[in-house]
Nucleic acid binder design. Structure first.
Lengths: 236, 236
DNA sequence: TGTGATTTGTTCGTATGTATG
DNA sequence: TCATACATACGAACAAATCAC
């Protein structure tokens, strides 16, 4: 009878540490050299164990950077009310937003149609990056009717929250009228912002939010990292 | 004052023909050579015009095959009741299914958990290809509790319809309990079946259907072609 | 199953007219 | 007037993917 191989023992040990939250999702494991020293074995033996963990999907090596504990995809519920901050807090993540652009311009055909405006009407545009635990999970571009919300950009700049900015604009509540979902490949720009490789899978969501009277208040497009987000649809 | 360029005139002419249904979605345009002859210009000039249309997303060239009028992605509504045949008929498409596999085996951990079975319990597996107007739009793998539906495979083989096969198994109605969505890249096998290129975007949907009493009757995974399908979420 | 014809993609080269400074 | 840059248009050849037999 053969003893269990050293590489398997190392894999088991690391797996135990990961599952018991000694290492957390997104954490970098010690370098292969450090692990080899710690276990008193050759680096190749450590690599063998890490390879097994990678095949299980538990870790995810990045050349030149290190071996990282796999992030379980963030669950992002799509429902009648889609609220970024709430969604991520409910998933136990720390939400954050980076502002990439805040501007007012004339809306294009699709934007104006979605917002029930005449083509060419002025719209506010809010582009940004959504982060969960500091990791980018989505790019978004939201468009709002400019005339109805004169101070929206200031409020967005201050709060970064669509919900709060709309509330200050007199919209106490808004709900999702439609959502359309596609799979796409990341463009170079998207990859840059989301810290992905060009050609990585992207889940694109296009939706319109309406106020209590059914008037569109926001037309939003969101590009989720396909690897880092799972959209969930729960029927009420 | 300059005349309008020939290539633009050709693009306008073709766009007119497309918008006026002279060419329909999925149709192949005449070859570049044929168009060049028809308009009495060089092939490059035709290509310039076609390139403009392609950038508008109106046409979609395929090397070695031809230039095709863009198919608008099939809308596939995700709701409480997801019915392939109804969904496609509602979108004005002709639905069809190819059977890739029908078998009974013991379910793995995830399948049994989703179906609320003990691990290793026997399940029926239905793998196939969903077609709209003859074009493959999705691969699916559905898993059913084998004990509860003894003749399911025969019924599936005969009707190809999950709804009908379950009805014959005594399930008059079933509803979607959960849906989870991810973006992935097509594997070689998936690309082959869906007639895509490896690495093309795939929208993966994982869901469980339950009967009127809330008992799971189907655990299904579907891989939609990201380009050919738009999932829509309405009336949550 | 493979083989040749068809069709788009790419890269050379040539020539002309127009706007700019 | 000259030099330059750019868009337009034509021609030829070959590569690569696809399709039909």
């Amino acid at each position: 009878m053969t003893r269990t191989p050293i590489w398997k023992a190392i894999a088991d040990s690391l797996r135990h540490d990961i599952l018991n939250q000694h290492y957390n999702p997104g954490d970098k494991l010690p370098t292969e050299a450090a692990l080899a020293a710690k276990y008193g074995v050759n680096r190749h033996t450590v690599r063998h164990g890490l390879k097994a963990l990678a095949e299980e999907g538990l870790v995810h090596p990045r050349r030149g950077a290190g071996v990282f504990v796999a992030m379980t995809p963030t669950d992002y519920p799509l429902g009648r009310r889609v609220r970024f901050h709430q969604n991520l807090a409910a998933a136990g993540r720390v939400p954050a937003k980076d502002i990439l652009a805040l501007e007012t311009r004339s809306g294009n055909a699709r934007e104006c149609e979605a917002l029930a405006l005449d083509e060419g009407t002025a719209v506010h545009v809010y582009e940004g990056l959504s982060l969960a635990d500091g990791q980018p999970i989505a790019l978004f571009r939201s468009v709002f009717p400019a005339e109805r919300f004169p101070h929206l950009l200031d409020n967005l700049n201050e709060t970064r929250s669509v919900t709060e900015a709309l509330r200050r604009g007199g919209v106490a509540d808004y709900t999702r009228a439609t959502t359309r979902l596609n799979a796409k490949l990341a463009t170079a720009t998207q990859a840059l912002h989301l810290r992905l490789a060009e050609g990585d899978p992207i889940l694109r969501s296009i939706g319109t939010n309406i106020d209590a009277k059914g008037v569109p208040v926001e037309f939003g497009r969101t590009w989720f990292s396909g690897d880092r987000v799972t959209l969930t649809v729960n029927n009420l």
